[in-house]
């Protein structure tokens, strides 16, 4: 197969970027989309040009590192599939394919297709966890959890934090991400003590990082590689409303600790 790739090239966050066209030949339909970028990069290196920088790690759809807007859709045309798991047989030979980075104020471009997604980490640091004492593992059934609750928590916990929801949202909102975290812990007994505070802290952190708000377009749900539904956003709204009206304290969250570079 042969393709024309139209790729966003940007040297660093200060330089302006632009779309650049490349021809790639000899693509097998069994290749993943990332392997096509690998192939193109090998050609670029041979020609003495700078290879295209892009994020990836596991290449099996679980780490959430790959982050490409392919032909105008985050993670490409195949539903519930990460870019690394997208195969070229889903495209037609000779097609022109555009490749862009996630675009959001909260995700500044570092280089080419690589964006800085630490804003999502800082949102998590603001409250996306449960505070429990560590120690030896508790007995498996000491804390009864219904199958329904466990399934719901698991459905939300499937979020790999890739940020496709932000990339797809016309408002670059991280609502689906935040909602998944809130719903995951809210379904479980361990999440109850901090439940309402968590909703407040995550929403405030999301705003602070410069993500937009939800206006119910539901584009996030359509591109989420883990199929996380927008009903979790309704859950977030519900917990937030309850927190706003019924909980007492609002702590100020300690400033997020930057990870070592």
């Amino acid at each position: 197969m042969k393709f024309t790739l139209c790729v966003w090239r940007q040297l660093n966050s200060d330089e302006p970027g632009s779309m650049v066209s490349y021809e790639v030949d000899g693509v097998s339909e069994d290749m993943s989309f990332l392997e096509v970028l690998d192939l193109l990069n090998e050609n670029l290196v041979v020609r003495g040009e700078e290879p295209i920088a892009f994020d990836h790690d596991c290449r099996e759809g679980i780490c959430g590192m790959c982050a490409l807007v392919i032909n105008g859709v985050p993670h490409g045309p195949e539903p519930v599939t990460t870019a690394c798991q997208l195969h070229m047989r889903k495209f037609t030979d000779g097609q022109t394919i555009t490749v862009e980075p996630w675009r959001a104020a909260a995700f500044p471009v570092i280089r080419d297709l690589v964006v800085d997604r630490r804003s999502l980490d800082r949102v998590i640091q603001a409250g996306g966890f449960v505070s429990v004492n560590t120690g030896s593992a508790p007995d498996a059934n000491a804390l009864p959890i219904s199958k329904d609750a466990a399934d719901r928590a698991f459905e939300a916990a499937a979020c790999i934090g890739c940020g496709a929801c932000v990339a797809a949202c016309p408002n670059a909102s991280a609502s689906l991400f935040v909602a998944a975290k809130v719903a995951q812990f809210a379904a479980l007994p361990q999440g109850q003590p901090e439940r309402l505070q968590r909703a407040i802290h995550l929403v405030e952190a999301m705003d602070r990082e410069g993500f937009g708000g939800c206006t119910n377009h539901y584009e996030c749900e359509a591109v989420c590689p883990k199929g996380i539904p927008v009903s979790f956003i309704a859950h977030l709204n519900r917990d937030f409303l309850k927190a706003a009206l019924m909980s007492r304290e609002v702590r100020d969250v300690p400033p997020a600790v930057e990870a070592e570079e």
Binding site: C6, W8, M19, V69, N71, G72, V73, T98, E100, R103, A104, A105, A106, A168, P170, N171, A172, S173, G210, F211, G212, G213, T215, H217, Y218, E219, E221, A222, V223
Partner: peptide, 16 residues
């Protein structure tokens, strides 16, 4: 919401 996406996509296809 507008501030949250300062650079627009050159190609964006809405899904739903």
């Amino acid at each position: 919401n507008r501030r949250a996406r300062p650079v627009r996509y050159s190609r964006r296809v809405a899904r739903q």
